[in-house]
Amino acid sequence: PLASIFVCVGAAMAIVGVLVLLHREPLAGNAWVSLAAVSLAVLPAVLFLVRRGDRNAARRGHIGEEETGAQPRRERMATLAGELARAQDGESIAELLLAAATEGLEVEFASLALIEGTTATGLAARLDGRSLPWPGELQVDLERQPSGIATAVFEVAPLAVYDLASSPAGDRELAEAIGARSGAWAPLVAGETVLAVLAVATRGQRAFPAEDLALLQELASGAAPALERT
């Protein structure tokens, strides 16, 4: 019904316009007053077309911004892939990966734990931009201790926990040690084996949406071949 206004008003104006053209007499006997009326009647169509042009321009500008925003991320991932390929040992791979994870996801804490059999051992951890000295002390028994790491290993999939305080014991201890409220994990997979688990955590409560988990998994997947090589 709303769109029909445009068609009907347009057709009505065309009919009256043709009549004036044929009879060559001003509407209601006064050309100037009629011009004012016609101008008022045309205004909505002019506004509609002008506003629409503005919106299209704004949308094009927005898409342009998104594209330029995505470009650095792709470039960062490519740079990281190159650095990972040149890394000589597990520790340097972990450093690169954790720096990329804390920066890319804007989180305070990131860690990488190696999976050997049913045990996860901390390889590196980073808190507030600095490496933590105690990652080796972090040991998680994957079978006896339910945790985010164990779930990421057994499900071979990324996961997020909104409230670590209500999470299993293993995560609670870690959360208390670094004062974290929310966390996310992603496995580094080579073939069918989970080599390690990348974890991130925040001091504030944060729901890691699908795009955050996708980025975390992208980082983990990118580092897996380099870690397998070393």
């Binding site: 769109a3 445009f6 057709a11 043709v18 007499e25 001003p26 016609v38 169509a45």
Partner: peptide, 29 residues
């Protein structure tokens, strides 16, 4: 003259207005 005024001030604006309305309808789909 009143004839040319009618065409210039009424017929042409009416036809231009009609075209704008029909263009808007086309844009709306």
């Amino acid at each position: 003259s009143s004839e040319s005024q009618a065409i210039l001030l009424n017929a042409i604006p009416l036809l231009v207005g009609a075209a704008l309305y029909l263009l808007s309808a086309g844009v709306l789909g």
